[in-house]
Amino acid sequence: MNRKQKMRIFSISMMMIALGIAIGLVLFALKKNINLFYTPTQLIESHTTQKNIRIGGYVKKKSVHFDSSGESVNFIVTDYRNEIAVNYHGLLPNLFREGQGVVVTGKLIETLDATSREKRSAGMTALSATEVLAKHDERYIPATLEKELKKGSPHAR
C-alpha cells in the first residue's frame, strides 16, 4: 500500500465514523417514534396525552371473553408487570390466542386519577381497539412435537 491509498482508507473511515455517529444520534433521538408500540408498563409510566395509541404485549391467559353474539371480544394485554383491558369489535388474525403476543391499535379510554393528574394507574386504563395484530415469536416447532411436549409436562411453558 502506498501513501495515497492509506490516505484514502483514512478519509473513508473518518467519513463512515462521522456518518455512523450522526445516524446513531438521530435514531437515538427518535427512539420513541420508531418504537411501534407501548408496552403496558411504558404506557402507564408515560405522560402521553395521545388518544390513539398502539400497545403490545401478551394476551393474558383465561382473559379472552367473547360476547354472546360472538362479534365483540374482551381480553387483557399484559407484559407480566402491568395489564391493560382491551375491547375489540372485528376479525381476529389466525395466530390470536391466549398467551400470544399481540399489537393492538385503538383509542385510550381512561379516567385519570383526580388527585394526581399526570399519573396513570393500571386499573383505570383501557383500550377500545380498532385493529388487533398477532405477533409471532421466533420459535418454530413441529405440530406433533408440540403436542408431545404439552402431554409430557403441563407446566413446561
Binding site: 411501534l36 421466533e138 418454530y140 413441529p142
Partner: peptide, 29 residues
C-alpha cells in the same frame, strides 16, 4: 440497523431465529 432493528426497538416483526449465537429456535427438521 436492519439486523438490530428487532432488538433495539419494539417491532411487530419477530426476533432472529437462526442468526443468533445460542442454539437456533427452529426444530432441526
Amino acid at each position: 440497523i436492519i439486523h438490530y432493528s428487532v432488538i433495539w426497538w419494539n417491532t411487530l416483526h419477530q426476533g432472529p431465529s437462526i442468526s443468533k449465537f445460542a442454539t437456533p429456535s427452529i426444530a432441526p427438521a
